[in-house]
Write a protein that binds this DNA or RNA. Structure first.
Lengths: 246, 246
DNA sequence: ACCTGAACACCGTTCAAGT
DNA sequence: ACCTGAACACCGTTCAAGT
């Protein structure tokens, strides 16, 4: 451990989180009141109210009655701020009480992850900035993995299942929040668009799904979660309805 | 339909695609050679080589030996360009031959969608800019939905299944490409990070998954896809192994 | 009609100078 | 030691002037 290693770790990486924690503990700020916590709170309020593009360093500084340079005392870059915001939001996940059974734990955590991200949907594109190694992300991983193991899945199933599940939850959040929020032409606006193509193209999209009510994004999420968990139990649990080894 | 409706539709929406197609047909460019196609090709090459941040209007103009203002003859904004790039990349999906059975079609298309997006991983964050209503996206939806119906699922299952599947594929792509590309602490770098927390916190993450080989991102994708499709068949097809009605 | 140089109104970030 | 005004090197986009 060198005394002054100025080379910056990539924001969001494990070493970045470690270095950041050390640096934060070492600070002795003046009594002017500016702190990382205040910055994060103000930034989140701004993102929620006006969108991610409105979060500029200058605008945030204005909101906090300082100059933009002052923010760089607490946060090394805009990307670092986004990493902090994402983990802050993950902290809003409500964990199920101890003793909740395995599958219910997984379902609650999946729904909660989706809920908090949808509550702060303007922040969602920031999830692509970095991997998720913040303390709140780690807690979610710990609990989610525990739920799958408790449900009876062996570790070599629980680990990929956990990762696939997170991919699915985050995928739904991404595409339910991307601009107008409907993926791939399955929406009611599409008819005039299809009319611009030759009559025999996209026969299915023209016919469907008018005879089927288009599911809401929440329905799609619930459907996908239930189907994935059922597939998991069908493939890897000895028999339905009874829990595996603990 | 008014003669001159100058109010711009939101890039990527059905009406935007329609208006764009009309405008492109109406153009009569000079012989200088600049065209939307050349712009898109140059932009994709730039993104692939140097990343999405390197795609600035000025830099792209330089690459094409013009001034930045000239690009605005063909593309109304940087966001419009991103929309065009995404649908262009979706055009690289190789569709299975006619006569391929339902489940195989769904598997091939899922793998292809993942493949082309991973091939242009620098473009992935641009997927959040808008919904997917381009001609290539529509074709994918048409074929994917057809595959699920052909596999024997009724429309009220095939539609949410299709949407959930796209969410999953895109979710994996997002998080396999986000910076260092590992989600939620399940990576080998994490040990020193965990050491910074109290010894009884994250017991599971400390112990796991050293006794289990950490799956690759491709393994997680294959695992999730197989599990979801198995769950779908288990829940909604009368018996395993035999196709439903067609 | 089509094209574009030059300007406008911003950005994130740095650094020398202040306390 | 901590803080910050002012500057640097960029952005996307517009528009009047040119052909």
């Amino acid at each position: 451990m060198r005394a002054t290693d100025v080379t910056a770790a990539v924001p969001g990486s494990p070493t970045w989180w470690l270095e950041r924690q050390a640096r934060e503990a070492r600070r002795r700020p003046r009594a002017d009141g500016l702190s990382t916590e205040r910055i994060v709170d103000a930034a989140l309020a701004l993102v929620d109210a006006e969108g991610l593009d409105a979060l500029t360093v200058r605008r945030l500084a204005e909101e906090l009655h300082t100059g933009s340079a002052s923010l760089y005392r607490h946060v090394a870059s805009r990307d670092e701020l986004l990493v902090l915001l994402v983990d802050h939001v993950l902290g809003e996940v409500r964990h199920p009480p101890d003793g909740t059974d395995g599958r219910a734990t997984v379902e609650v955590l999946s729904n909660e992850l989706r809920r908090v991200l949808m509550d702060h949907h303007n922040l969602v594109p920031a999830l692509t900035v970095s991997p998720l190694f913040g303390p709140n992300a780690l807690l979610g991983t710990e609990r989610g993995l525990a739920g799958l193991l408790d449900a009876g899945f062996p570790p070599d199933v629980a680990v990929p299942a956990y990762l696939a599940l997170v991919d699915f939850v985050l995928g739904t959040v991404f595409f339910d929040t991307s601009s107008t929020g409907q993926v791939s032409g399955l929406t009611h606006e599409r008819h005039e668009l299809l009319a611009a193509f030759p009559a025999d193209a996209f026969a299915l999209l023209r016919a469907r799904p008018d005879d089927v009510s288009l599911p809401s994004v929440d329905d799609v999420f619930a459907f996908g979660l239930a189907t994935f968990l059922d597939g998991l139990e069908h493939r890897f649990l000895p028999s339905d309805g009874t829990a595996g080894p603990r």
